[in-house]
């Protein structure tokens, strides 16, 4: 287990710059999610850390070792792929034991460690099956066991859960988190699913156009986004129209900044609130009931705002009528314009 330091890494593919002067630290034993839209460079960063790509500039350290010129075979990492990449010609046990066999681990120890790894992912009974005889979730677990059986210094996950259906995905998220805690391995996880990133990781890095926009604990990134992209990509943002700013109490001066609120911070009423909270007037377009929660879509000065609240907390409102959306001034997000 080691920490990973990426410093000033630039990676180009021909003319296109995939990573642009990226610096980021992955703490020892941490679970770090790299989040970004497609083409943001998150997979490139992961594969550069893995050693499939060599950066044009910058350094990568795993533990105390500089590895930017070390090929992937010698980096001692564990990796899980989007489509699992299990070897179809080998049994589950042989798949898991592949890395051990390559490292010439003695047969008895190899057997013990395969059994341990399969036990960890709760697939002890499946050792002799072929990958084609397993379900998607089971393949997932085999891939995980295979990635960690060699005790790598760092575990790299490339959108490993995106091929699973939703219920199975939630199960696997919990499982993945449990296993990661149990073995305490430094884990870097690439995803485009913000909920997954928030659920699993203790730190999040948001990427855009080959640059790290913001990195930090999920709550910090969510509550204090550094720019409009981060605010809109992790969670949803209702942007305050310029004209509405006058008369609102804002956390900082308005010059050169844009302001937003989160959908769950808002409350809705037919009358203007009298308690000194910030409020804007809008027109209720739609109210969507979704069981425990409900969503209201409100038009505010030509923009669409979204409110999410417990259904019972939303009063009866006339459709198409004027409503007031109110929030605590402290819950206002401010980002540079």
């Amino acid at each position: 287990m080691s920490r990973v330091d990426v410093a000033n890494v630039t990676k180009k593919f021909g003319q296109a710059t995939a990573l642009d002067d990226v610096s980021i630290t992955f703490e020892d034993g941490g679970f770090f999610a790299l989040l970004g839209p497609s083409g943001s460079g998150k997979t490139t960063l992961l594969r550069t850390i893995a050693g499939f790509y060599f950066p044009e500039a910058g350094t990568i350290r795993i533990g105390e070792q500089n590895v930017e010129t070390v090929p992937v075979e010698k980096r001692d990492i564990g990796m899980m792929f989007q489509n699992y990449a299990l070897f179809p010609n080998m049994s589950v046990a042989d798949n898991v034991g592949f890395g051990l066999r390559v490292r010439k681990v003695p047969a008895a120890e190899e057997k013990r460690r395969i059994a341990e790894a399969l036990e960890l992912v709760q697939l002890g009974a499946m050792a002799n099956r072929k990958p084609s005889q397993l379900s998607g979730g089971q393949r997932q677990r085999v891939a995980l066991a295979r990635a960690i059986v060699t005790n790598p210094r760092v575990l790299l996950l490339d959108e490993p859960l995106s091929a699973l259906d939703k219920t199975l995905r939630v199960d696997m998220q919990i499982e993945l988190k449990r296993i990661q805690r149990e073995i305490g391995i430094t884990t870097i996880f690439v995803t485009h699913d913000q909920e997954e990133a928030l659920t699993l990781s203790d730190r999040i890095g948001i990427l855009k156009d080959g640059r790290i926009v913001q990195a930090g604990p999920p709550r910090e990134v969510y509550d204090r986004p550094v720019d409009a992209f981060a605010a809109g990509f992790l969670g949803e943002a209702n942007w305050l129209p310029e004209a509405a700013l006058a008369g609102l109490s804002l956390p900082v001066t308005a010059a050169g900044r844009r302001f937003a609120t989160r959908p769950e911070m808002l409350s809705i009423s037919a009358e203007a609130p009298a308690d000194g909270r910030n409020a804007v007037k809008g027109r209720l377009q739609q109210r969507v009931f979704a069981g425990a929660m409900a969503t209201c879509l409100v038009e505010v000065a030509g923009q669409q705002w979204k409110l999410v609240a417990r259904d019972r907390d939303i009063p009866e409102l006339p459709g198409g009528g004027d409503v007031w959306l109110a929030w605590d001034p402290a819950d206002t997000l401010a980002v540079p314009a």
Binding site: A85, F87, N89, F98
Partner: peptide
Amino acid sequence: VDDDLIDAARSMGASKLTILRRILLPL
């Protein structure tokens, strides 16, 4: 043969010869 299989084998430390012998040739 999916290129990811080769990448996966490399990530586990396999040399080119091992990949040929244990993955590409059998498949």
